[in-house]
């Protein structure tokens, strides 16, 4: 899970999930705590789905 996905591709990560921003990949300080938790939950949920997805090559899991 990272924000700068081209770096993840360069270093060879296989399942890549784009995140929010470099200093807070899994959060957003500009929204309420509750909304932020929901955002993080949905990102992690997508990561969990990515882990269960069969891939043949490096894959970026876009929205």
């Amino acid at each position: 899970m990272c924000t700068i996905t081209p770096i993840s591709l360069t270093v060879g990560a296989n399942r890549i999930l784009p995140t929010v921003a470099i200093p807070h990949p899994l959060g957003n300080p500009n929204i309420t705590k509750e909304k932020e938790y929901e955002l993080r939950y949905s990102l992690v949920e997508r990561a969990i789905n990515a882990l269960q997805t069969e891939i043949k090559e490096q894959t970026i899991f876009e929205q």
Partner: peptide, 21 residues
């Protein structure tokens, strides 16, 4: 900028969400 991670490190490693999951 460490400000946001220092306020809440779940923003970098989602321990809170994973515990709930």
């Amino acid at each position: 900028d460490p400000t946001y991670a220092n306020q809440d490190s779940d923003r970098v490693i989602p321990v809170d969400v994973l515990r709930n999951m």
